[in-house]
Design a protein around this nucleic acid. Structure first.
Length: 286
RNA sequence: GGCUGGGUAGCUCAGUUGGUAGAGCAGAGGACUGAAAAUCCUUGUGUCGGCGGUUCAAACCCGCCCUUAGCCA
C-alpha cells in the first residue's frame, strides 16, 4: 500500500490538469480532482474539464459526480475523496490530487468541517429565522454574546452555520472553535508532496484570455443554455461559477457584447484570490 | 457653419433648489467550519475640459474657447 499523495495546485489556467495527466501516466497514478465545479455533470466547457479522451486515459475521480442542479459542498467532497483514495490505494496505485479549489484542497491538510450533526428541527427553526433580516444575528448574539470575536458577523454566510452549530451543540463559538482546532485531517494521515503550478503574470493572464475565447468558440453559450434547462439556477454555487454566471446574465439580457471581457475580468480576480488563499489560508490551522 | 447632448477617481457614471464631491468596477490589503470559481471586511485629495465673470460661496449660474457623439445644413 502506497500512502504517498502528490498534490498539484495553483491558480486557474496555469496548466495543472496537463501536468497531472502526464505525471499520472509516468508513475501509473490515478487522479483525484479538487475542483468545486468539475464535480458537476454537464459543466464541461466552462469548468475547463479534461476531455473525454483524457478522462479515459487516466482514471479521474471526483469529476462528474453530481447533477448541476444539486448543490455539492466540502462535506460531500471529503466523503467522495476518502472513498476514492481508498480505492486507489487498494489497487496499489499512486494518487495525484489536482485542482485549484482552495477550501476543498485544504481538506487534504487539515480539518475544514466539524462533526456536529444539525438535527432537522434546528435546521427548520433557523430557516424560519432566516426569513427576516437580522433575526438570525440577533439570535446568535443572544446565545453567544461573544460571537463577533470568533466569526465575521457582517458576513451572512457565516451567521447561519454558526447559529445552527450553537443550537445543536449547546456550546459557545469559542468552545466549538477549540474543539475544531484539535480535529485531525479528514483524509487521514499520509505523506504529502505539494507541487505549486503557477506562471508569471503576463503569461498566465494571456493563457486565461485565450482559454476564455476558446470556451466561447467551443460552445459555452449553448452549454449554459442546456444547463439552464437542467435547472442550474437552483444551485447557487454552480450558477455563480465564473464563465457561467456571466453567460447566464448575457443570455437573459440578450447582450453578448462584453461577455468575453466580463469573464476575463472575473477570472483575473479569481487568480488573485486563489493565490491569496494559497499564501494565507491553505496551511493555516485555526 | 447651426442645433442638441456629453466632458467629474484608472474605467462606467451619480451629484436634489449654488455651500470646495460620491457609487459600482478595477487596483491594494485582510478574513475564511459544510455555496468556497462563493461570501465578507478595510482602503478613494480627484487642476469636477480650459479661461474669464456673477456670488460671501460654483461641478452646479453667465460668456468665450477646446473636445466628443448625434442631428440639420
Amino acid at each position: 500500500m502506497n500512502s504517498e499523495v502528490i498534490i498539484i495546485s495553483g491558480p486557474t489556467a496555469a496548466g495543472k490538469s496537463q501536468k497531472a495527466l502526464s505525471l499520472a501516466k509516468e508513475i501509473d497514478a490515478e487522479i483525484i480532482s479538487c475542483d468545486s465545479i468539475q464535480v458537476y455533470r454537464n459543466m464541461d466547457i466552462g469548468s475547463a474539464k479534461p476531455s473525454q479522451a483524457e478522462l479515459l486515459e487516466v482514471p479521474h475521480h471526483l469529476i462528474n459526480v453530481c447533477d448541476a442542479n444539486i448543490q455539492f459542498n466540502v462535506g460531500d467532497y471529503i466523503l467522495y475523496a476518502k472513498k476514492a483514495l481508498k480505492e486507489i490505494q487498494k489497487k496499489g496505485k499512486r494518487t495525484i490530487v489536482v485542482g485549484g479549489s482552495g477550501f476543498y484542497l485544504k481538506a487534504w491538510f487539515s480539518a475544514v468541517t466539524d462533526e456536529i450533526e444539525i438535527p432537522s428541527n434546528i435546521k427548520t427553526e433557523v430557516e424560519k429565522l432566516a426569513q427576516k433580516e437580522n433575526v438570525m444575528l440577533a439570535k446568535l448574539l443572544e446565545l453567544d454574546p461573544n460571537a463577533a470575536k470568533i466569526i465575521d458577523i457582517q458576513n451572512p454566510r457565516r451567521i447561519r452555520p454558526a447559529l445552527e452549530r450553537i443550537m445543536a451543540s449547546g456550546l459557545s463559538l469559542s468552545e466549538l472553535k477549540n474543539k475544531f482546532s484539535s480535529l485531525p485531517c479528514p483524509m487521514g494521515d499520509f505523506q504529502k508532496t505539494f507541487i505549486m503550478q503557477d506562471l508569471q503574470d503576463p503569461e498566465l493572464f494571456e493563457r486565461a484570455k485565450h482559454r476564455i475565447d476558446k470556451m466561447l468558440a467551443q460552445g459555452l453559450i449553448a452549454e449554459t443554455r442546456k444547463l439552464l434547462e437542467l435547472g442550474i439556477e437552483r444551485n447557487a454555487s454552480a450558477s455563480s461559477a465564473i464563465g457561467y454566471r456571466e453567460t447566464i446574465s448575457a443570455i437573459k439580457s440578450g447582450n453578448f457584447e462584453n461577455l468575453s471581457e466580463e469573464i476575463y475580468k472575473n477570472t483575473v480576480a479569481l487568480i488573485k484570490k486563489q493565490r491569496k488563499f494559497f499564501k494565507n489560508a491553505l496551511f493555516k490551522t485555526s
